[in-house]
Amino acid sequence: MNQKVMQKRKWQSTLFLLIIIAVTYLSAVITNFNFVDGLAAFPAAIGWIISNLLITQESLERLPTILEKLNETVFMSIAATTTAAVISIFLGLMGSKTTSLNGILSVVARFIAAVSRNIPVVAWALILLLSFGQNSVTGYLALFVGTVGFLTRAFIESIDEASQSSVEALTATGATYFHIVNKAVIPQCLPQMISWILFMIETNIRSATLVGILTGTGIGYTFDMYYKSMNYNAVALVTFSIVIAVIIIELISNYIRKVIL
């Protein structure tokens, strides 16, 4: 009996592995991916990075402009995340089973969230670019929409998880919906929510770079410009400034998380 189970397991694992290998092979064929080339490209690429992506005196002179653009991008990400968070709190309250006012609203909230997060930010950026033009607002809106979708789902989970029992208790004391949300649900979920917001700010700074390349704004545009003009020293500097910005923000959020969670 036991042996049979073991054998079945072994079969399953082998089958699973074979499927993965087949899918991977298929993917390589369809994308024209050559494993040998890929493998060979890697050390070559690293070598190229080390020898070409150097920060030189000349590129350092561009630092003020780069930092200005970086600033723009960071602030855009933060603004997009926080404003999205405000909307998401409402959608989250509507979408969660414990705090939802009625079934239809709940479905609507979940639907909005699902659509906005599953259409990639690039698609939003391209769509908005057509009418908003090349400026921060386009990028802001693209990030905003995607963030609303993501945060709403996260908030719904936090609310569902954290508050069912206290909502019941407060309802039983005769508290109104607003009392319950304001004095039990939000205080209980706030740390989790802040943590998600911080996570989204980090993510959005990286996405903002991508969006910037498409919409011609912020640090993404700066990168693209130097990249296209093959000024690799400046490219290196841009990359490093992004890395430093992201790491600083990560450190700050880790600290905040550690204290509040």
Binding site: S165, A169, A172, T173, G174
Partner: peptide
């Protein structure tokens, strides 16, 4: 009515962070 009836729960149902 509910203000006139108190309720006590098995799992206390407090807001843990407050």
């Amino acid at each position: 009515l509910r203000t006139n009836i108190g309720m006590v729960f098995q799992h206390y149902n407090l807001v843990p962070r407050l």
